[in-house]
């Protein structure tokens, strides 16, 4: 398969999904409102906490807003491009429709991951980016071009961690037929990403830094914007996220071996 085939195929899938999404415009605006209300909820939490304290784990109110907004930005991009396809996997397995994916001459993991698109979250990603900029403005920080470039790279790295976790969770469907609860698991576990890294200690910090680097997902990009580039944590983040994505991919392939077609 040629190198450019997969990006071209993804672009085709995006255009198709975009057309489908635009057929239900009211639904699009409804989902923008839904996601926005969840973001407001997170900001309200920050507001309530900092109504009582000046700093949490060394992060002041505006720094925390940059952290929460960065986390939201990554999550919304993931929700737009990769999450909708992945969350359909349990249904594909249960109904046997995965057969149609396996028959195509494209890696099944790629097809499953990119089959769907939601554009509503992209609007919210824009709002999150705006809130992060406002947080930086309140802090009086103008990040350098190098910091912004590193931030963008780290956003992609954060997406890899989201992808690894959800791919692992939905792959459980090959063992547990009714695996819809995995989505709840994904949202529950990902609450860790909103924590300031300095707040975590002991085994919790080790597990969520080295095994599943959730504590780095929003922390490292936000810190890069606020305090500048620090190559050590950045390299650690790149390494752990790539490892997590690779292991999740292996787990998916292991699960595929268990798949029994539903066709007669």
């Amino acid at each position: 398969m040629r190198l450019l085939t997969l990006p071209r195929l993804w672009w085709t899938q995006i255009r198709y999904a975009l057309t489908r999404e635009m057929a239900f415009r009211a639904n699009f605006f409804a989902w923008v409102m839904v996601e926005l209300s969840w973001f407001v909820l997170q900001l309200a939490f920050v507001g309530v906490v900092y109504h009582h304290v000046e700093s949490v784990a060394g992060w002041n109110r505006n720094q925390m807003i940059v952290l929460v907004a960065t986390n939201q930005l990554i999550q919304q991009i993931f929700t737009a491009f990769l999450m909708p396809g992945l969350t359909k996997l349990p249904e594909l397995v249960r109904t046997g429709k995965l057969d149609f994916v396996l028959l195509k001459p494209v890696p099944p993991q790629f097809l499953v991951s990119t089959a769907e698109l939601e554009i509503g979250p992209l609007a919210n990603a824009g709002i999150a980016a705006l809130v992060a900029c406002m947080g930086l403005h309140s802090l009086g920080i103008v990040p350098s071009m190098a910091s912004v470039a590193a931030y963008l790279l780290l956003l992609v790295t954060g997406l890899l961690v989201h992808y690894a976790l959800l791919l692992f969770l939905v792959s459980l469907t090959f063992w547990i037929i009714q695996a819809e609860s995995v989505l709840l698991g994904y949202y529950s576990i990902f609450q860790v990403a909103r924590l300031p890294r300095e707040a975590a200690r002991g085994w919790f910090r080790i597990v969520f830094t080295l095994v599943l680097p959730l504590l780095l997902v929003a922390n490292i990009p936000a810190t890069t914007l606020i305090r500048g580039i620090d190559p050590g944590p950045m390299s650690l983040f790149l390494l752990t996220s790539l490892t997590a994505a690779f292991l999740a991919s292996l787990f998916f392939r292991r699960g595929l071996l268990r798949y029994q077609s539903a066709s007669s």
């Binding site: 695996a179 819809e180 709840l184 529950s188 576990i189 609450q191 924590l195 707040a199 975590a200």
Partner: peptide, 18 residues
């Protein structure tokens, strides 16, 4: 499904604690 839900529901408590 319920077992998984119950296990995952402990996570927010852990995060809140930290």
């Amino acid at each position: 499904n319920y077992l998984l839900r119950a296990l995952f529901s402990a996570m927010p408590l852990l995060v809140s604690w930290i």
